[in-house]
Write a protein that binds this DNA or RNA. Structure first.
Lengths: 247, 247
DNA sequence: TCTGCTATACTGGTATACCACATCTTTGGC
DNA sequence: GCCAAAGATGTGGTATACCAGTATAGCAGA
Protein backbone atom coordinates (compact mmCIF):
# COMPACT_ATOMS: atom_id res chain seq x y z
CA UNK A 1 0.00 0.00 0.00
CA UNK A 2 2.96 2.28 0.48
CA UNK A 3 3.24 4.85 -2.28
CA UNK A 4 6.85 5.89 -1.99
CA UNK A 5 9.68 4.58 -4.07
CA UNK A 6 12.42 2.71 -2.31
CA UNK A 7 15.75 4.00 -3.50
CA UNK A 8 18.55 1.50 -3.64
CA UNK A 9 21.14 4.22 -3.31
CA UNK A 10 21.76 5.86 0.06
CA UNK A 11 20.11 9.24 0.36
CA UNK A 12 23.38 11.06 0.69
CA UNK A 13 24.19 10.19 -2.90
CA UNK A 14 20.87 11.36 -4.26
CA UNK A 15 21.06 14.30 -6.59
CA UNK A 16 19.50 17.34 -5.04
CA UNK A 17 17.47 20.15 -6.52
CA UNK A 18 19.65 23.22 -6.99
CA UNK A 19 17.72 26.19 -5.59
CA UNK A 20 19.72 28.53 -7.82
CA UNK A 21 17.61 27.23 -10.69
CA UNK A 22 14.77 29.21 -9.20
CA UNK A 23 16.66 32.50 -9.11
CA UNK A 24 14.53 33.99 -11.87
CA UNK A 25 11.34 33.29 -9.95
CA UNK A 26 9.34 36.48 -9.36
CA UNK A 27 6.26 36.76 -7.21
CA UNK A 28 3.16 38.37 -8.66
CA UNK A 29 0.40 39.81 -6.55
CA UNK A 30 -2.40 38.62 -8.77
CA UNK A 31 -2.20 34.98 -7.70
CA UNK A 32 -1.54 33.16 -4.46
CA UNK A 33 2.07 32.31 -3.75
CA UNK A 34 1.22 28.60 -3.54
CA UNK A 35 -0.35 28.63 -6.99
CA UNK A 36 2.63 30.41 -8.56
CA UNK A 37 5.10 27.97 -7.03
CA UNK A 38 3.00 25.05 -8.23
CA UNK A 39 2.89 26.33 -11.79
CA UNK A 40 6.59 27.09 -11.84
CA UNK A 41 7.60 23.69 -10.52
CA UNK A 42 5.14 21.91 -12.80
CA UNK A 43 6.54 23.68 -15.84
CA UNK A 44 10.09 22.83 -14.84
CA UNK A 45 9.29 19.19 -14.26
CA UNK A 46 7.47 18.75 -17.56
CA UNK A 47 10.27 20.43 -19.46
CA UNK A 48 12.80 18.23 -17.68
CA UNK A 49 14.65 21.15 -16.10
CA UNK A 50 13.86 19.33 -12.86
CA UNK A 51 14.90 15.82 -13.77
CA UNK A 52 13.32 12.60 -12.47
CA UNK A 53 14.84 11.34 -9.23
CA UNK A 54 16.03 14.72 -8.00
CA UNK A 55 15.38 15.33 -4.30
CA UNK A 56 13.45 18.45 -3.38
CA UNK A 57 13.16 19.80 0.16
CA UNK A 58 10.24 21.95 1.23
CA UNK A 59 12.50 24.03 3.41
CA UNK A 60 15.21 24.54 0.80
CA UNK A 61 12.68 25.51 -1.86
CA UNK A 62 11.09 27.97 0.56
CA UNK A 63 14.47 29.51 1.34
CA UNK A 64 15.40 29.77 -2.32
CA UNK A 65 12.11 31.50 -3.13
CA UNK A 66 12.10 33.73 -0.08
CA UNK A 67 8.75 32.49 1.20
CA UNK A 68 7.67 30.28 4.08
CA UNK A 69 7.21 26.53 3.93
CA UNK A 70 3.41 26.71 3.93
CA UNK A 71 2.78 27.73 0.30
CA UNK A 72 5.67 25.54 -0.87
CA UNK A 73 4.10 22.63 0.92
CA UNK A 74 0.75 23.27 -0.73
CA UNK A 75 2.44 23.26 -4.12
CA UNK A 76 4.21 19.98 -3.28
CA UNK A 77 0.92 18.41 -2.24
CA UNK A 78 -0.69 19.34 -5.54
CA UNK A 79 2.27 17.93 -7.43
CA UNK A 80 2.16 14.72 -5.45
CA UNK A 81 -1.56 14.32 -6.16
CA UNK A 82 -0.71 14.40 -9.83
CA UNK A 83 2.17 11.99 -9.27
CA UNK A 84 4.78 14.49 -10.43
CA UNK A 85 6.63 14.18 -7.16
CA UNK A 86 6.76 11.34 -4.65
CA UNK A 87 6.48 12.43 -1.03
CA UNK A 88 8.02 9.96 1.42
CA UNK A 89 6.93 11.16 4.86
CA UNK A 90 9.79 11.95 7.17
CA UNK A 91 12.21 10.88 4.44
CA UNK A 92 12.29 13.02 1.36
CA UNK A 93 10.39 14.34 -1.63
CA UNK A 94 11.66 13.59 -5.10
CA UNK A 95 10.65 14.24 -8.69
CA UNK A 96 8.92 11.07 -9.86
CA UNK A 97 10.64 8.96 -12.47
CA UNK A 98 8.88 8.43 -15.76
CA UNK A 99 6.88 5.22 -15.62
CA UNK A 100 6.33 3.58 -18.99
CA UNK A 101 3.38 1.68 -17.52
CA UNK A 102 1.81 4.97 -16.49
CA UNK A 103 2.61 6.60 -19.81
CA UNK A 104 0.92 3.75 -21.66
CA UNK A 105 -2.27 4.04 -19.65
CA UNK A 106 -2.22 7.81 -20.05
CA UNK A 107 -1.88 7.28 -23.75
CA UNK A 108 -4.81 4.87 -23.77
CA UNK A 109 -6.88 7.49 -21.97
CA UNK A 110 -5.89 10.19 -24.41
CA UNK A 111 -6.48 8.09 -27.49
CA UNK A 112 -9.90 6.89 -26.34
CA UNK A 113 -11.05 10.38 -25.48
CA UNK A 114 -9.56 12.20 -28.44
CA UNK A 115 -10.99 9.72 -30.95
CA UNK A 116 -14.44 10.43 -29.57
CA UNK A 117 -13.86 14.17 -29.52
CA UNK A 118 -12.53 14.11 -33.07
CA UNK A 119 -15.66 12.29 -34.23
CA UNK A 120 -17.83 15.01 -32.73
CA UNK A 121 -15.58 17.66 -34.23
CA UNK A 122 -15.85 16.28 -37.76
CA UNK A 123 -19.57 15.53 -37.57
CA UNK A 124 -20.45 19.01 -36.27
CA UNK A 125 -17.79 21.03 -38.03
CA UNK A 126 -18.19 24.72 -37.22
CA UNK A 127 -17.38 27.24 -39.96
CA UNK A 128 -14.07 28.78 -39.01
CA UNK A 129 -12.83 25.82 -37.01
CA UNK A 130 -10.60 24.80 -39.89
CA UNK A 131 -9.17 28.31 -39.98
CA UNK A 132 -8.17 28.02 -36.33
CA UNK A 133 -6.34 24.75 -37.02
CA UNK A 134 -4.54 26.21 -40.01
CA UNK A 135 -3.46 29.25 -38.02
CA UNK A 136 -1.96 27.00 -35.36
CA UNK A 137 -0.14 25.00 -38.02
CA UNK A 138 1.29 28.25 -39.37
CA UNK A 139 2.59 29.12 -35.90
CA UNK A 140 4.16 25.68 -35.66
CA UNK A 141 5.95 26.23 -38.95
CA UNK A 142 7.42 29.49 -37.71
CA UNK A 143 8.52 27.87 -34.43
CA UNK A 144 10.20 25.09 -36.41
CA UNK A 145 12.03 27.59 -38.63
CA UNK A 146 13.34 29.53 -35.66
CA UNK A 147 14.15 26.27 -33.87
CA UNK A 148 12.06 27.28 -30.86
CA UNK A 149 11.26 23.76 -29.69
CA UNK A 150 9.37 24.80 -26.58
CA UNK A 151 7.06 26.99 -28.65
CA UNK A 152 6.60 24.18 -31.14
CA UNK A 153 5.32 21.87 -28.40
CA UNK A 154 3.04 24.58 -27.07
CA UNK A 155 1.44 24.97 -30.49
CA UNK A 156 1.23 21.20 -30.81
CA UNK A 157 -0.86 21.19 -27.64
CA UNK A 158 -2.85 24.09 -29.01
CA UNK A 159 -3.68 22.13 -32.16
CA UNK A 160 -5.17 19.25 -30.20
CA UNK A 161 -6.81 21.57 -27.69
CA UNK A 162 -8.78 23.10 -30.54
CA UNK A 163 -10.77 19.89 -30.99
CA UNK A 164 -11.89 20.02 -27.37
CA UNK A 165 -12.69 23.72 -27.40
CA UNK A 166 -14.75 23.47 -30.59
CA UNK A 167 -16.80 20.53 -29.30
CA UNK A 168 -17.45 22.06 -25.87
CA UNK A 169 -15.33 19.45 -24.13
CA UNK A 170 -12.89 21.73 -22.41
CA UNK A 171 -13.25 20.10 -19.01
CA UNK A 172 -12.26 16.83 -20.65
CA UNK A 173 -9.16 18.54 -22.01
CA UNK A 174 -8.24 19.73 -18.54
CA UNK A 175 -8.61 16.23 -17.12
CA UNK A 176 -6.29 15.00 -19.83
CA UNK A 177 -3.71 17.72 -19.17
CA UNK A 178 -3.68 17.05 -15.47
CA UNK A 179 -3.36 13.29 -15.86
CA UNK A 180 -1.14 12.69 -18.85
CA UNK A 181 1.98 13.83 -17.22
CA UNK A 182 4.45 11.03 -17.95
CA UNK A 183 3.20 10.90 -21.51
CA UNK A 184 3.96 14.61 -21.78
CA UNK A 185 7.46 14.22 -20.39
CA UNK A 186 8.26 11.43 -22.83
CA UNK A 187 6.95 13.55 -25.67
CA UNK A 188 9.16 16.40 -24.53
CA UNK A 189 12.24 14.20 -24.37
CA UNK A 190 11.46 12.85 -27.80
CA UNK A 191 10.60 16.04 -29.66
CA UNK A 192 13.26 18.31 -28.29
CA UNK A 193 16.03 15.96 -29.25
CA UNK A 194 15.06 15.50 -32.86
CA UNK A 195 13.96 18.08 -35.40
CA UNK A 196 12.85 15.36 -37.84
CA UNK A 197 10.20 14.27 -35.34
CA UNK A 198 8.82 17.77 -35.20
CA UNK A 199 8.67 17.95 -38.98
CA UNK A 200 6.74 14.67 -39.11
CA UNK A 201 4.41 15.96 -36.41
CA UNK A 202 3.72 19.04 -38.52
CA UNK A 203 3.06 17.03 -41.66
CA UNK A 204 0.59 14.82 -39.83
CA UNK A 205 -1.27 17.87 -38.58
CA UNK A 206 -1.52 19.18 -42.14
CA UNK A 207 -2.74 15.80 -43.35
CA UNK A 208 -5.36 15.69 -40.59
CA UNK A 209 -6.73 19.07 -41.66
CA UNK A 210 -6.96 17.86 -45.27
CA UNK A 211 -8.92 14.77 -44.20
CA UNK A 212 -11.18 16.81 -41.92
CA UNK A 213 -11.99 19.10 -44.84
CA UNK A 214 -13.08 16.02 -46.77
CA UNK A 215 -15.15 14.86 -43.77
CA UNK A 216 -13.19 11.61 -44.00
CA UNK A 217 -13.77 10.48 -40.42
CA UNK A 218 -12.38 6.96 -40.71
CA UNK A 219 -9.04 8.05 -42.15
CA UNK A 220 -8.57 11.01 -39.83
CA UNK A 221 -9.21 8.77 -36.83
CA UNK A 222 -6.69 6.25 -38.12
CA UNK A 223 -4.18 9.02 -38.67
CA UNK A 224 -4.75 10.41 -35.18
CA UNK A 225 -4.12 6.94 -33.80
CA UNK A 226 -0.77 6.74 -35.59
CA UNK A 227 -0.04 10.34 -34.63
CA UNK A 228 -0.36 9.96 -30.88
CA UNK A 229 1.11 6.45 -30.84
CA UNK A 230 4.34 7.63 -32.46
CA UNK A 231 5.87 8.23 -29.04
CA UNK A 232 5.70 4.53 -28.21
CA UNK A 233 7.93 3.55 -31.07
CA UNK A 234 10.57 5.70 -29.43
CA UNK A 235 10.26 4.54 -25.85
CA UNK A 236 12.98 1.95 -26.32
CA UNK A 237 15.34 4.55 -27.76
CA UNK A 238 14.53 7.00 -24.99
CA UNK A 239 14.98 4.33 -22.35
CA UNK A 240 18.48 3.65 -23.62
CA UNK A 241 19.35 7.30 -23.90
CA UNK A 242 17.93 8.33 -20.50
CA UNK A 243 17.99 5.17 -18.35
CA UNK A 244 18.21 7.24 -15.17
CA UNK A 245 14.88 8.98 -15.90
CA UNK A 246 12.71 6.09 -17.02
CA UNK A 247 11.64 3.03 -15.11
CA UNK B 1 -11.77 34.07 -15.19
CA UNK B 2 -12.89 34.04 -11.57
CA UNK B 3 -13.61 30.54 -10.38
CA UNK B 4 -15.83 31.19 -7.42
CA UNK B 5 -19.57 31.16 -7.51
CA UNK B 6 -21.34 34.41 -6.89
CA UNK B 7 -24.18 33.83 -4.49
CA UNK B 8 -27.23 35.98 -4.92
CA UNK B 9 -28.23 35.47 -1.32
CA UNK B 10 -26.36 37.27 1.45
CA UNK B 11 -23.90 35.04 3.21
CA UNK B 12 -25.77 35.21 6.48
CA UNK B 13 -28.59 33.21 4.94
CA UNK B 14 -26.29 30.54 3.58
CA UNK B 15 -26.75 27.17 5.12
CA UNK B 16 -23.74 26.19 7.15
CA UNK B 17 -22.08 22.85 7.65
CA UNK B 18 -23.11 21.39 11.00
CA UNK B 19 -19.95 20.17 12.73
CA UNK B 20 -22.01 17.73 14.78
CA UNK B 21 -22.28 15.66 11.60
CA UNK B 22 -18.65 14.81 12.14
CA UNK B 23 -19.12 13.56 15.68
CA UNK B 24 -18.47 9.96 14.68
CA UNK B 25 -15.13 10.87 13.13
CA UNK B 26 -12.29 8.92 14.70
CA UNK B 27 -8.61 9.50 14.02
CA UNK B 28 -6.46 6.53 13.07
CA UNK B 29 -2.70 6.49 13.43
CA UNK B 30 -2.07 4.63 10.20
CA UNK B 31 -2.76 7.59 7.92
CA UNK B 32 -2.10 11.31 8.05
CA UNK B 33 -4.81 13.43 9.60
CA UNK B 34 -5.16 15.45 6.39
CA UNK B 35 -5.77 12.32 4.36
CA UNK B 36 -8.41 11.00 6.74
CA UNK B 37 -10.28 14.31 6.76
CA UNK B 38 -10.16 14.42 2.96
CA UNK B 39 -11.60 10.93 2.61
CA UNK B 40 -14.31 11.56 5.17
CA UNK B 41 -15.43 14.83 3.59
CA UNK B 42 -15.25 13.35 0.09
CA UNK B 43 -17.46 10.43 1.10
CA UNK B 44 -19.98 12.75 2.72
CA UNK B 45 -20.14 15.05 -0.27
CA UNK B 46 -20.61 12.23 -2.77
CA UNK B 47 -23.34 10.65 -0.66
CA UNK B 48 -25.03 14.04 -0.33
CA UNK B 49 -24.75 14.13 3.45
CA UNK B 50 -22.94 17.39 2.81
CA UNK B 51 -25.31 19.03 0.39
CA UNK B 52 -24.33 21.40 -2.45
CA UNK B 53 -24.18 25.04 -1.42
CA UNK B 54 -23.41 24.40 2.23
CA UNK B 55 -20.74 26.68 3.67
CA UNK B 56 -17.78 25.03 5.33
CA UNK B 57 -15.24 26.86 7.45
CA UNK B 58 -11.70 25.59 7.90
CA UNK B 59 -11.67 26.75 11.50
CA UNK B 60 -15.05 25.27 12.41
CA UNK B 61 -14.19 21.94 10.84
CA UNK B 62 -10.90 21.91 12.71
CA UNK B 63 -12.66 22.65 16.00
CA UNK B 64 -15.27 19.97 15.39
CA UNK B 65 -12.61 17.38 14.65
CA UNK B 66 -10.29 18.45 17.43
CA UNK B 67 -7.32 19.13 15.14
CA UNK B 68 -5.62 22.26 13.89
CA UNK B 69 -6.48 24.15 10.73
CA UNK B 70 -3.44 22.90 8.80
CA UNK B 71 -4.58 19.35 7.93
CA UNK B 72 -8.14 20.58 7.41
CA UNK B 73 -6.85 23.15 4.98
CA UNK B 74 -4.90 20.51 3.08
CA UNK B 75 -8.05 18.43 2.76
CA UNK B 76 -10.00 21.46 1.54
CA UNK B 77 -7.33 22.18 -1.07
CA UNK B 78 -7.55 18.64 -2.40
CA UNK B 79 -11.33 18.87 -2.55
CA UNK B 80 -11.15 22.20 -4.35
CA UNK B 81 -8.73 20.78 -6.92
CA UNK B 82 -11.36 18.17 -7.71
CA UNK B 83 -14.05 20.84 -7.80
CA UNK B 84 -15.97 19.31 -4.90
CA UNK B 85 -15.75 22.55 -2.96
CA UNK B 86 -15.35 26.12 -4.15
CA UNK B 87 -12.86 28.19 -2.18
CA UNK B 88 -13.48 31.93 -2.37
CA UNK B 89 -10.41 33.53 -0.80
CA UNK B 90 -11.21 35.71 2.17
CA UNK B 91 -14.89 34.97 1.65
CA UNK B 92 -15.96 31.42 2.24
CA UNK B 93 -15.67 27.81 1.17
CA UNK B 94 -18.77 25.95 0.04
CA UNK B 95 -19.72 22.54 -1.29
CA UNK B 96 -19.94 22.95 -5.06
CA UNK B 97 -23.34 22.68 -6.66
CA UNK B 98 -23.88 19.94 -9.19
CA UNK B 99 -23.21 21.30 -12.66
CA UNK B 100 -25.10 19.52 -15.43
CA UNK B 101 -22.56 20.87 -17.92
CA UNK B 102 -19.78 19.28 -15.90
CA UNK B 103 -21.71 16.04 -15.45
CA UNK B 104 -22.22 15.80 -19.20
CA UNK B 105 -18.53 16.19 -19.96
CA UNK B 106 -17.66 13.72 -17.22
CA UNK B 107 -20.09 11.32 -18.80
CA UNK B 108 -18.51 11.82 -22.22
CA UNK B 109 -15.13 11.05 -20.70
CA UNK B 110 -16.41 7.93 -19.02
CA UNK B 111 -18.25 6.64 -22.04
CA UNK B 112 -15.30 7.19 -24.39
CA UNK B 113 -12.89 5.47 -22.06
CA UNK B 114 -15.10 2.62 -20.98
CA UNK B 115 -16.08 1.73 -24.52
CA UNK B 116 -12.40 1.34 -25.36
CA UNK B 117 -11.73 -0.64 -22.18
CA UNK B 118 -14.71 -2.88 -22.83
CA UNK B 119 -13.41 -3.62 -26.32
CA UNK B 120 -10.07 -4.72 -24.89
CA UNK B 121 -11.87 -6.74 -22.23
CA UNK B 122 -13.98 -8.67 -24.72
CA UNK B 123 -11.17 -9.20 -27.24
CA UNK B 124 -8.75 -10.51 -24.60
CA UNK B 125 -11.18 -12.24 -22.29
CA UNK B 126 -9.32 -13.90 -19.44
CA UNK B 127 -10.70 -17.19 -18.10
CA UNK B 128 -12.30 -16.38 -14.77
CA UNK B 129 -13.08 -12.77 -15.60
CA UNK B 130 -16.70 -13.69 -16.24
CA UNK B 131 -16.84 -15.37 -12.84
CA UNK B 132 -15.75 -12.14 -11.17
CA UNK B 133 -18.53 -10.22 -12.91
CA UNK B 134 -21.12 -12.80 -11.94
CA UNK B 135 -19.98 -12.75 -8.32
CA UNK B 136 -20.40 -8.97 -8.23
CA UNK B 137 -23.88 -9.28 -9.73
CA UNK B 138 -24.76 -11.77 -7.00
CA UNK B 139 -23.64 -9.27 -4.37
CA UNK B 140 -25.78 -6.61 -6.03
CA UNK B 141 -28.80 -8.90 -5.86
CA UNK B 142 -28.30 -9.41 -2.14
CA UNK B 143 -27.89 -5.67 -1.56
CA UNK B 144 -31.10 -5.05 -3.48
CA UNK B 145 -33.00 -7.64 -1.41
CA UNK B 146 -31.84 -6.13 1.87
CA UNK B 147 -32.49 -2.64 0.49
CA UNK B 148 -28.92 -1.57 1.23
CA UNK B 149 -28.70 1.13 -1.43
CA UNK B 150 -25.24 2.31 -0.51
CA UNK B 151 -23.88 -1.22 -0.87
CA UNK B 152 -25.70 -1.58 -4.17
CA UNK B 153 -23.91 1.45 -5.59
CA UNK B 154 -20.58 0.19 -4.28
CA UNK B 155 -21.05 -3.09 -6.13
CA UNK B 156 -22.20 -1.21 -9.21
CA UNK B 157 -18.85 0.58 -9.17
CA UNK B 158 -17.15 -2.75 -8.56
CA UNK B 159 -18.78 -4.23 -11.65
CA UNK B 160 -17.41 -1.51 -13.92
CA UNK B 161 -14.08 -1.45 -12.13
CA UNK B 162 -13.60 -5.08 -13.07
CA UNK B 163 -13.25 -4.15 -16.75
CA UNK B 164 -10.37 -1.82 -15.91
CA UNK B 165 -8.64 -4.24 -13.57
CA UNK B 166 -8.83 -7.11 -16.04
CA UNK B 167 -7.40 -5.03 -18.89
CA UNK B 168 -4.58 -3.52 -16.82
CA UNK B 169 -6.09 -0.06 -17.00
CA UNK B 170 -6.40 0.65 -13.32
CA UNK B 171 -4.76 4.06 -13.49
CA UNK B 172 -7.41 5.04 -16.03
CA UNK B 173 -10.06 3.93 -13.58
CA UNK B 174 -8.56 6.14 -10.89
CA UNK B 175 -8.54 9.14 -13.21
CA UNK B 176 -12.20 8.49 -13.90
CA UNK B 177 -13.06 8.19 -10.21
CA UNK B 178 -11.28 11.39 -9.35
CA UNK B 179 -12.86 13.37 -12.14
CA UNK B 180 -16.42 12.12 -12.50
CA UNK B 181 -17.62 13.66 -9.37
CA UNK B 182 -20.80 15.46 -10.42
CA UNK B 183 -21.79 12.43 -12.48
CA UNK B 184 -21.41 10.32 -9.34
CA UNK B 185 -23.52 12.65 -7.26
CA UNK B 186 -26.32 12.64 -9.83
CA UNK B 187 -26.18 8.87 -9.97
CA UNK B 188 -26.43 8.74 -6.19
CA UNK B 189 -29.44 11.05 -6.12
CA UNK B 190 -31.07 8.99 -8.83
CA UNK B 191 -30.45 5.48 -7.57
CA UNK B 192 -31.13 5.99 -3.90
CA UNK B 193 -34.53 7.42 -4.54
CA UNK B 194 -35.86 4.68 -6.77
CA UNK B 195 -35.61 0.92 -6.36
CA UNK B 196 -36.85 0.34 -9.90
CA UNK B 197 -33.76 2.07 -11.25
CA UNK B 198 -31.54 -0.28 -9.31
CA UNK B 199 -33.43 -3.28 -10.65
CA UNK B 200 -32.95 -2.03 -14.21
CA UNK B 201 -29.27 -1.46 -13.51
CA UNK B 202 -28.94 -5.04 -12.34
CA UNK B 203 -30.74 -6.44 -15.37
CA UNK B 204 -28.46 -4.50 -17.71
CA UNK B 205 -25.42 -5.91 -15.94
CA UNK B 206 -26.74 -9.44 -16.42
CA UNK B 207 -27.46 -8.74 -20.06
CA UNK B 208 -23.93 -7.38 -20.53
CA UNK B 209 -22.43 -10.56 -19.12
CA UNK B 210 -24.54 -12.65 -21.49
CA UNK B 211 -23.35 -10.62 -24.49
CA UNK B 212 -19.75 -10.76 -23.32
CA UNK B 213 -19.98 -14.53 -23.12
CA UNK B 214 -21.11 -14.54 -26.76
CA UNK B 215 -18.21 -12.22 -27.63
CA UNK B 216 -20.83 -9.89 -29.12
CA UNK B 217 -18.78 -6.71 -28.96
CA UNK B 218 -21.09 -4.46 -30.97
CA UNK B 219 -24.17 -5.20 -28.88
CA UNK B 220 -22.40 -5.03 -25.53
CA UNK B 221 -20.94 -1.63 -26.45
CA UNK B 222 -24.36 -0.39 -27.47
CA UNK B 223 -25.81 -1.68 -24.22
CA UNK B 224 -23.07 -0.02 -22.20
CA UNK B 225 -23.85 3.24 -23.96
CA UNK B 226 -27.51 3.00 -22.98
CA UNK B 227 -26.49 1.82 -19.51
CA UNK B 228 -24.35 4.80 -18.58
CA UNK B 229 -26.55 7.31 -20.40
CA UNK B 230 -29.57 6.37 -18.35
CA UNK B 231 -28.75 9.05 -15.82
CA UNK B 232 -29.28 11.77 -18.40
CA UNK B 233 -32.88 10.84 -18.97
CA UNK B 234 -33.42 11.62 -15.32
CA UNK B 235 -31.60 14.91 -15.05
CA UNK B 236 -34.79 16.86 -15.71
CA UNK B 237 -36.62 14.96 -12.99
CA UNK B 238 -33.75 15.41 -10.56
CA UNK B 239 -33.50 19.11 -11.37
CA UNK B 240 -37.16 19.57 -10.45
CA UNK B 241 -36.86 17.52 -7.31
CA UNK B 242 -33.61 19.08 -6.09
CA UNK B 243 -33.46 22.57 -7.66
CA UNK B 244 -31.28 23.85 -4.85
CA UNK B 245 -28.53 21.31 -5.60
CA UNK B 246 -28.31 21.48 -9.37
CA UNK B 247 -27.38 24.37 -11.58
C1' DT C 1 -37.26 55.27 7.05
C1' DC C 2 -33.30 55.44 4.43
C1' DT C 3 -28.35 55.88 3.43
C1' DG C 4 -23.58 55.78 4.08
C1' DC C 5 -19.86 55.23 7.29
C1' DT C 6 -17.23 52.57 10.65
C1' DA C 7 -16.05 49.15 13.95
C1' DT C 8 -15.91 44.39 14.40
C1' DA C 9 -15.81 39.59 13.42
C1' DC C 10 -14.53 36.27 10.37
C1' DT C 11 -12.31 34.31 6.13
C1' DG C 12 -8.58 32.13 3.83
C1' DG C 13 -3.30 32.94 2.89
C1' DT C 14 1.11 32.99 4.93
C1' DA C 15 4.83 32.71 8.52
C1' DT C 16 6.76 30.39 12.32
C1' DA C 17 7.49 26.85 15.88
C1' DC C 18 7.42 22.31 17.33
C1' DC C 19 6.95 17.26 16.93
C1' DA C 20 7.90 12.32 15.72
C1' DC C 21 10.51 9.74 12.94
C1' DA C 22 14.05 8.34 9.35
C1' DT C 23 18.62 8.88 8.39
C1' DC C 24 23.34 10.09 9.02
C1' DT C 25 27.34 10.73 11.90
C1' DT C 26 29.95 10.04 15.75
C1' DT C 27 31.47 7.41 19.36
C1' DG C 28 32.94 3.73 22.31
C1' DG C 29 33.58 -0.92 22.94
C1' DC C 30 35.89 -4.95 21.36
C1' DG D 1 39.61 -2.75 11.80
C1' DC D 2 34.75 -3.77 12.83
C1' DC D 3 30.22 -2.86 14.53
C1' DA D 4 26.57 -1.50 17.37
C1' DA D 5 24.71 2.17 20.22
C1' DA D 6 23.96 6.96 20.93
C1' DG D 7 23.65 11.49 19.56
C1' DA D 8 23.00 14.92 15.72
C1' DT D 9 20.69 16.32 11.66
C1' DG D 10 17.05 16.77 8.46
C1' DT D 11 12.40 15.43 6.84
C1' DG D 12 7.54 16.00 6.38
C1' DG D 13 3.20 16.49 9.52
C1' DT D 14 0.85 19.39 12.68
C1' DA D 15 -0.22 23.41 15.74
C1' DT D 16 -0.37 28.22 16.40
C1' DA D 17 -0.09 33.18 15.35
C1' DC D 18 -0.62 36.90 12.40
C1' DC D 19 -2.02 39.31 8.16
C1' DA D 20 -4.93 41.52 4.48
C1' DG D 21 -9.23 41.49 2.66
C1' DT D 22 -14.41 40.73 3.08
C1' DA D 23 -19.03 40.64 5.10
C1' DT D 24 -21.87 42.06 8.79
C1' DA D 25 -24.05 44.93 12.19
C1' DG D 26 -24.66 49.07 14.37
C1' DC D 27 -24.60 53.87 14.43
C1' DA D 28 -24.91 58.71 12.70
C1' DG D 29 -26.86 61.90 9.74
C1' DA D 30 -30.47 63.08 6.56
Amino acid sequence: MSTFIKESRPYQECERFDPLQMSDFQLKDSQTVASQIYKTLRERIITMQLTPGVTMSEQETANALGVSRTPVREAFIRLSREKMVIISPQRRTAVAKISTERAQQEHFLRESLEQAVLEQFVLNLRPGAIDVLEQVIELQKQALLSKDFAAFLTFDDEFHRTFYVETDKYLCYQVLRRNCFDYQRLRYLSSCSDEAIQRMNLEQHEQMVRLIKERNLADVQALLRRHVRRIFDEIKVLKERYPQFIQ
